[in-house]
Design a protein around this nucleic acid. Structure first.
Length: 536
RNA sequence: GCCCUCGUAGCUCAGUUGGAUAGAGCGACCGCCUCCUAAGCGGUAGGUCACAGGUUCAAUUCCUGUCGAGGGCGCCA
């Protein structure tokens, strides 16, 4: 990689200048402004103090040293500002990028094995099966899925899981609501008045038992949730039943394990977990109520014991809504108490989403089902919409605007760029233009700023993916793919691949540029789970 | 009261882990189709990066405080 070559050259130059101590790492970045060159380093600023030198002087010496023996592709090394060292490169470095992209292809370019085969489980959505998925509890479905794709590409082994809350009070409440509908009685307090319950009630012919009725309804609703997830290309490896944990001896075993460690006390007939010493801000939490039932927390700790100690995941990432924030510290305390390193569990809290029309709530009667959004704008736009922003951002979505501007949405912008690539290839085929092997093509003809901009974007993809994985921030891929689309539209507009005044040699070079862009779109869109259409 | 996540253009949001003159889309205004799809391209206008301190060569970015928004602090799940 060019960055490593430049960093090595800088280190060599620093050593030649007897800088002591040598910086552990040379920071190289792409300046925001073109005048500042293609690559820039702040190493003189960063290292000067420790070495007892003047930053600007050190930068000047560095420039002199590097200019005397410039690394490959470097045509000029300049000093700027308070002591930046700016590298100006020949376009050949970008032609090398093109070759790298084509050599790597969709499967290989911008991949790393940084994850080292780490087995990562991502649990996301996990909404209670008491009603259809709505835009609130389904918003981070694309996030969890895309994060999995990014982690897979960076060398992790990913498993996607939906924790099915198929037991407990809300299932009984669902059953009671179903039976009430069935008998034509009013839905009980705290029940589920939704239309879907009435519809299900018509089909129910089981026993007059709230648990049985609730489980029957939950199973049906879960089928709908699966279909919704599939419709936006989210495929789970596991739908894990909470009941299977609670009905096994797993919870009791987990509590026993904690008790054996001396972390459980009994008071008022309840069993308490001494959670504070494991980082819980609260002194202690109930594991088993005085009525003998285990709490949700006890079940959740048992569930995570299962994830780590039974199923052997190296790392667990839970994607939860911000309204579950209160559970995090207790769960992590429980996991730690079981002897599991705290940094193996991550809880990513997605901020609540709201509608421009106001708060969404079941009681307000303005719940928008995810299915309806998918039906309106399609799965691609639905996915990209939620992948444009960080999950730390409490977004406001205006569904009316999303609908009316769906033709101008980012997804069309990006997909349109991709169809233009397909279009170029179609026209080339019609005109009998065949792409020669890349080794026979003079990529040195690619000198137009628009062409170089496309290649600059492609050169950044490996970094983008690496950072998106490390930060658990797949939206960075979405930002990148929009930038690539922007650059490609510019190229398309200003640089004809075939046409008047375009030499056969230039056509060949541009066909390869187009191919490298195609690979970039294919990688980026696949990571986002958005389709890359051939025509629109 | 305490904890978490935030506060960037009229609106919705980016901002490469501290860099040089802070970006995009939508909305507004002005241009560009006899060649690969105008679902596109170019331009103009729009900012005290909530506010005040601190850290340093350098702060939208890190720290503290204030103000504001959302969320959380049960023997509910």
């Amino acid at each position: 990689m060019i960055r490593d070559a430049l960093a090595d050259a800088v280190l060599d130059a620093l050593a030649a200048l007897h800088v002591d101590p040598l910086p552990a790492q040379v920071n190289l970045e792409r300046p925001a402004r073109r005048e500042h060159g293609d690559w820039s380093s702040n190493v003189a600023l960063a290292a000067a103090k420790a070495a007892g030198r003047n930053p600007r002087e050190l930068a000047a010496q560095l420039v002199e040293q590097l200019s005397a023996n410039p690394p490959a592709h470097v045509v000029a090394v300049e000093i700027a500002g308070p002591g930046f060292v700016n590298f100006r490169l020949a376009p050949t470095w970008l032609h090398d990028v093109l070759t790298d992209v084509v050599d790597g292809g969709t499967e290989g370019y911008a991949t790393t094995d940084a994850g080292g085969g780490e087995r990562v489980q991502i649990e996301f959505v996990s909404a209670n099966p008491t009603g259809p998925i709505h835009v609130g509890n389904g918003w981070f479905a694309s996030y969890g899925d895309a994060l999995g794709r990014v982690l897979t590409r960076t060398g992790h082994v990913v498993s996607r899981e939906y924790y099915v809350n198929d037991t407990g009070g809300q299932i009984r409440a669902l059953g009671a609501s179903l039976l009430a509908h069935h008998k034509g009685e009013p839905v009980p307090e705290g029940g589920y008045p939704g239309e879907y319950v009435a519809d299900l009630a018509k089909e129910y012919d089981g026993a007059d038992d709230v648990t049985e009725a609730g489980q029957w309804a939950a199973e049906r609703i879960l089928g709908g949730i699966r279909a919704t997830m599939e419709s936006i290309h989210v495929h789970y490896d596991e739908w894990y039943s909470q009941a299977s944990i609670e009905e096994s001896s797993a919870v009791a075993e987990t509590v026993e394990e904690l008790r054996a460690k001396g972390l459980v006390t009994e008071e008022d007939g309840a069993l308490w977990f001494e959670s504070k010493e494991f980082g819980d801000p609260r002194e202690r939490r109930v594991l088993r109520k005085s009525n003998g039932d285990y709490t949700y927390l006890a079940g959740d700790i048992a569930y995570h014991r299962n994830k780590f100690l039974i199923r052997g995941f190296d790392r667990v990432i839970n994607v939860w809504g911000a309204d579950h924030h209160g559970q995090v510290a207790s769960l992590v305390a429980g996991v730690r108490a079981l002897g599991i390193d705290a940094d193996r569990i991550e809880v990513r809290l997605g901020q609540m989403i709201s509608l421009a029309s106001g708060r969404m709530g079941k009681r307000l009667g303005n719940v928008v089902n995810l299915d309806d959004v998918v039906a309106d704008i399609g799965p691609d736009a639905t996915r990209l919409l939620s992948l444009l922003t960080s999950i730390d951002q409490a977004v406001t979505i205006d569904l009316d605007k999303v609908r009316s501007h769906s033709k101008e949405s980012p997804v069309f912008y990006v997909q349109y760029a991709h169809t233009r690539i397909a279009s170029i290839n179609r026209v080339a085929a019609e005109r009998g233009v065949v792409r020669s092997p890349i080794t026979d093509v003079d990529l040195g003809l690619l000198l137009h700023e628009r062409e170089l901009d496309v290649l600059r974007s492609l050169s950044e993809l490996p970094d983008v993916i690496r950072i998106a994985a490390a930060d658990r921030a797949p939206h960075k891929v979405a930002t990148w793919v929009r930038e690539l689309a922007d650059r490609f539209h510019g190229f398309y507009h200003d640089c004809y691949v075939m046409g008047d005044g375009v030499s056969p040699e230039l056509t060949q070079a541009r066909l390869w540029l187009v191919e490298s862009a195609r690979i970039g779109f294919a990688i980026g869109l696949d990571l986002l789970g958005v389709s890359a259409p051939e025509s629109m």
